[in-house]
């Protein structure tokens, strides 16, 4: 399998995605914004459609749309005092509706579109890999630098505000990180399933973790394992990688739940 260049590229890109998605998802789960990745993903779909319509690479238009969607969600939540789920719903449905209209106008309702929606191991190019590595590294560096401040906001947002931490900026950073993750992950997992890779490893890890540090480390391990195992299943079973990866992550969640139950009975 690794004799084939497209698989090597898919695995390399998948490893970055498997690392970055749970790290970013960790903060979304703590803020009870697990579905933000879904909302941003649907806006990214509109971005893909805009790319087709404009004749520009859909990767970049999707990334731009994802960042715009993240900014709008955070703005609605923080400054317009819209409840988090309502802000998400507004962006979520506007994104998918805009995407459908644009994709129809571009005449691009075809099989190629599915590679963006559900991922494809055939489509990762060397240029894509470079973009994924660069943006993924930038996302991880941003988390490393602001880790304590991000955790402080996750643990107690009001306390962080009183203590003078730049809470709106830090919330914006988390939304921006979510948008970047959607942008770099859509080739591997697909726009419609990326949110699952941000959230499932984290909620699985939290069932068996004993500290924040262990929860984050286990999230990354489960994310990586899900991507690598999912890609392997996708190759041998000729299945869409996004579905295989997410179902593997679901499997990890079930195992973690059983372990948690077993531990509770000891």
């Amino acid at each position: 399998m690794l004799d084939l260049e497209f698989m090597r590229l898919a695995f390399a890109a998948g490893a970055v995605v498997g690392l970055v998605a749970p790290v970013v998802g960790f903060f979304l789960v703590q803020r009870q914004m697990s579905l933000i990745g879904d909302g941003i993903g649907h806006v990214a779909f509109a971005g893909v459609a805009a790319g087709y319509l404009l004749g520009v690479s859909p990767v970049w238009t999707a990334l731009a749309a994802a960042i715009l969607g993240a900014v709008v969600i955070e703005w609605l939540r923080a400054y317009r005092r819209t409840a988090g789920d309502q802000a998400l719903a507004l962006v979520f449905y506007t994104g998918i509706a805009g995407g459908v209209v644009l994709i129809s106008a571009a005449g691009a309702l075809n099989a190629n579109l599915f590679t963006y929606l559900f991922g494809s191991i055939l489509t990762v190019t060397r240029r894509d890999l470079l973009t994924i590595v660069l943006l993924g590294s930038a996302a991880l560096a941003l988390v490393a630098v602001s880790l304590r401040a991000l955790l402080a906001v996750s643990i107690d947002e009001e306390g962080a505000r009183v203590a003078g931490l730049p809470v709106p900026v830090l919330n914006g950073v988390v939304s921006l990180l979510a948008a970047l993750t959607v942008g770099i992950s859509m080739r591997i997992v697909g726009i419609l399933l990326i949110a699952a890779l941000m959230v499932l490893p984290v909620i699985a890890a939290q069932r068996v973790a004993w500290s924040l540090r262990s929860a984050m480390a286990l999230s990354v391990a489960i994310g990586l394992a899900s991507v690598l195992a999912g890609l392997t299943v996708s190759y041998y079973g000729n299945l869409p990688p996004g579905g295989s990866i997410v179902l593997t992550a679901t499997g990890f969640f079930l195992v973690a739940s059983v372990l948690e139950l077993a531990r509770g009975r000891v």
């Binding site: 630098v145 602001s146 401040a149 962080a160 939290q206 973790a209 004993w210 924040l212």
Partner: peptide
């Protein structure tokens, strides 16, 4: 509230972010 199983030390360390956020 935090969803993850934060330890006492991790919670207290978050309070130090007021002095050293980054």
């Amino acid at each position: 509230g935090v969803q993850a199983p934060a330890t006492v030390r991790e919670i207290v360390a978050a309070g130090r972010a007021a002095r050293r956020p980054f």
